[in-house]
Design a protein around this nucleic acid. Structure first.
Length: 384
DNA sequence: TCCAGGTTTCCTGTTT
DNA sequence: AAAACAGGAAACCTGG
């Protein structure tokens, strides 16, 4: 993968092929997704090169990030106030976009940006209808490549991070609470999200409904392992061929060790831990795990059945989809290999600091301690 | 440059 | 048997 353009094309094609449920997300949660800037920045595949990629692809083949790039360009060119634009309206892929009428686009993007976007889209569609011969060939190639890599137990193209060094992120752009988003979870991450104890808010503890997991966020079940436990399955644990390129101040790119204790060399599938896809950027101060957990709990629109209060007044809560929460945390920290096991270790460190209290005998249940804050009803002033 | 805080990762053993 | 829990150890990153 030496050509960034080809890499981006393949990555985007893969995203296009496998991203599902975007319209579902659109219809449900228009206000909870991050801003355009934070999504672009939090997307590891994003780069200045790929941001122009949509110009070379038919709108019908645009992935969500191509749509985002396209919208971003128009936001800039029209001096539109992006802060008034919900990212949820931008988090759709090309095929979804192409199905929208002019009125629908005006309804979504407003009377200023909507017509502009519609006009632009028609121009792009017209342009690429003339080149329709080449696009199916590209899609077919991408599909073949994906199948090929999949059969070799390589990660899907969408899980490979390419040119990360190009996606340099400034610290001020990483604002807590806005840059995690389930729609950005990759294929590899979604294969193991289904916990055995998923419960909707209306269900009792005795009810189990793992079969409904895939539909919670509108993701389809895309080839999860039979075992149902991606974490314990070596084939579904880590991307194998990704590399972490860290751009230094001098501008060169080099391999960098991932954070944490290095894994044992002898472990199967750990061909090289230093080649794992990770950005070793530590979160800025104030971005703590317990705050992340707290914010999921106190924002029902973000919760989506991930966690629930067991005792709202006592601060007792339970993970309903522990792996999904861990993936979200990992996404926030730019760490694709985050698991509930690791997250829970960090949670246990909070016992000593009395940010959390133990809840003995109950699995996946924690309680906020006296050194936590911001979760009490009287503190946040709303009724849960 | 060093240090502290806050994880992240791995590991072994225990409990549910 | 598997998943979750517990906690030690070590590594890493960021901010001060």
């Amino acid at each position: 993968m030496s050509s960034p353009c080809l890499s981006s094309v393949l990555t985007n094609a893969n995203l296009t092929m496998y991203q599902t449920g975007v319209s579902d997300v659109l219809s449900r949660q228009p206000s909870v997704l991050p801003s355009i800037n934070t999504l672009q920045i939090s997307n590891p595949a994003y780069s200045s090169i790929s941001s122009q990629l949509y110009r070379q692809i038919s709108p019908h083949c645009w992935a969500a990030e191509n749509v985002l790039d396209w919208i971003s360009d128009h936001v800039e060119s029209t001096k539109f106030d992006a802060s008034t634009l919900s990212l949820a309206y931008c988090a759709m892929d090309g095929p979804t976009l192409c199905q929208m009428s002019r009125d629908q686009m005006i309804a979504l993007f407003g009377p200023q940006l909507g017509p502009h976007l519609h006009q632009s889209l028609q121009e792009h569609k017209t342009k690429y209808e003339l080149q329709s011969l080449s696009v199916p060939e590209l899609n077919e190639t991408c599909l073949l490549l994906d199948n090929f890599l999949d059969n070799l137990n390589f990660p899907l193209l969408s899980t490979i991070r390419i040119g990360q060094a190009e996606g340099a992120v400034s610290k001020r752009d990483i604002e807590y609470g806005d840059d995690y988003d389930l729609t950005g979870l990759t294929m590899e991450s979604m294969t193991s999200l289904g916990d055995t104890e998923y419960l909707s808010d209306n269900q009792s503890d005795s009810e189990h409904s793992s079969s409904s997991n895939s539909g919670m966020f509108g993701f389809s079940n895309l080839g999860s392992p039979e075992s149902g436990s991606g974490e314990s399955d070596p084939e579904f644990s880590y991307p194998l061929i990704s590399k972490v390129h860290i751009k230094t101040e001098k501008g060169e790119s080099r391999l960098k060790r991932p954070r944490g204790r290095p894994p044992k060399i002898s472990r199967e599938h750990s061909s090289s831990i230093y080649e794992n896809s990770k950005k070793n950027k530590h979160a800025p101060r104030g971005t703590h795990l317990w705050e992340f957990i707290r914010d999921i709990l106190i924002h029902p629109e973000r919760n989506q059945g991930l966690m629930k209060w067991e005792d709202r007044h006592e601060g007792v809560f339970k993970f309903l989809k522990s792996e999904a929460v861990a993936q979200m945390w990992g996404q926030k920290k730019k760490n694709s290999s985050m698991t509930y096991e690791k997250l829970s270790r960090a949670m246990r460190y909070y016992y000593k600091r009395e940010i959390l209290e133990r809840v003995d005998g109950r699995r996946l249940v924690y309680k906020f301690g006296k050194n936590s804050s911001g979760w009490k009803i009287e503190e946040i002033g709303i009724s849960m």
